[in-house]
Nucleic acid binder design. Structure first.
Lengths: 228, 228
DNA sequence: ATATAAAACGAACGTTCGTGCTATATACCT
DNA sequence: AGGTATATAGCACGAACGTTCGTTTTATAT
């Protein structure tokens, strides 16, 4: 009785205690899983390989998930957190409007360039692997990508509302184009490892932003010299 | 004797004879392999599965290639032939210049839309699967993609030479952008199966062509109503 | 210090993978 | 007709796959 009450009060605190050990291991597993999966794919991510890399037993690792599919879903979820931390959050520290929109694209490219995931964009790889493989994994990936496209679209519309972009620009269309250019850069970079791919994508996006910007918006856009 | 002479005259005709039987089987295998691989990946393309689909024995099938890697390379090569037949050749029947350039992009999108490969663009899938997996398969894929980018780039430069596109347009940059938009459409379509993805890519490409075209080039560009 | 529940383990399951070896059937050449 | 290269099949292999099981270790709450 007293036990239950005490435990309850601790429940949402930083993970300490016997129950927390599992969570910590699980987290470590997923951290490794994300990087293997981004390079070798979510199917190439094998439980034996994962166990070996973490020097633990297959069965001990497996117990954390109950099935490979659940491991895959958990891995996707972990990748999403990383993506949010590395791309979304930094961009949302920028001022709403055309600056945030540019930062969003720029940071995306930066996160590929920095090699946050061993195999480039986790979701580009995962989407192309699972797009013709029905199931919960595919569904979750599709959801997350919709989320991302919506974020991009909203940033565009916010930039319009702020008077930085002309109002007759089709936000969905522009979001599609930006996303394509980013995926294109990722794709080319993974194949040829030339950083020019990123320059090209930045160039294309910047050019489009400058073309669609109002006078006010253009003043806020970084000049080419300012770009890193 | 008479028989032999007869055979020689037939040599380049549709394959007949005991040696030809192997070739025919091999061709049939690869035709099936390409479609499985485009959907399930070149690694997911398993010899057992392939044999089952063709109702022949694993070993009998295997004998045609000697190793899985060789089967994969041959599959990539087959996909290349199909791509050439379905995309490159039709475009090269169009007049050199901005029309051929547009046709090249339009046909590319059409070949995805038509579902020539079960899993969308074979090379988009293969590239993203093998980009972090060194070996001959990866190398061949990278070569073929360079080939495609070069074709796109040359079409752009030819359009410039023909006076259809402004000469200050950076052909490599534009080729990158067009390729990205196509890959983006393929990616989005595989996930959500909405044909709007193609409309968006066409819109973006067409818009760019119109912006970069000379007066002469603009006259040759299909109007939106003309587009299929 | 001891009871207890969570966490990790080792061994084995039945499949499927790619790859050999050996034998048989088929089609051509002399 | 007989010999020969080719094409396919049958069978077995070792390894790796995801998964299950019963047991042992570990950590904490009392």
């Amino acid at each position: 009785m007293a036990k239950a009450r005490l435990q309850k009060s601790v429940e949402d605190r930083p993970p300490v205690g016997r129950k927390a050990q599992g969570e910590r291991t699980r987290h470590a597993i997923l951290e490794t899983a994300v990087h293997i999966a981004s390079a070798e794919g979510l199917e190439g991510l094998t439980i034996g390989r994962l166990a070996l890399e973490l020097s633990m037993s297959k069965s001990g690792l497996f117990a954390h998930f109950g099935s490979k599919e659940e491991l895959q879903v958990a891995t996707v979820e972990t990748a999403r957190s990383i993506f949010i931390k590395e791309v979304i959050k930094p961009a949302f520290e920028a001022q709403e409007g055309v600056v945030r929109l540019w930062t969003l694209c720029d940071t995306w490219l930066g996160y590929i360039q920095a090699g946050i995931f061993r195999g480039g964009c986790f979701f580009a790889a995962a989407a192309s692997e699972f797009d013709s493989r029905p199931g919960v994994v595919r569904d979750r990936i599709a959801e997350i990508m919709k989320e991302w496209l919506a974020t991009l679209r909203k940033a565009i519309m916010d930039a319009q509302k702020a008077g930085h972009l002309k109002s007759d620009v089709d936000a969905t269309q522009l979001a599609f184009e930006f996303n394509s250019l980013e995926l294109g850069a990722n794709w080319e970079y993974q194949l040829y490892r030339e950083s020019r791919s990123f320059t090209r994508a930045r160039e294309a996006i910047h050019h489009r932003l400058a073309a669609y910007a109002t006078a006010a918006g253009r003043r806020l856009l970084p000049t080419k010299e300012t770009e890193k």
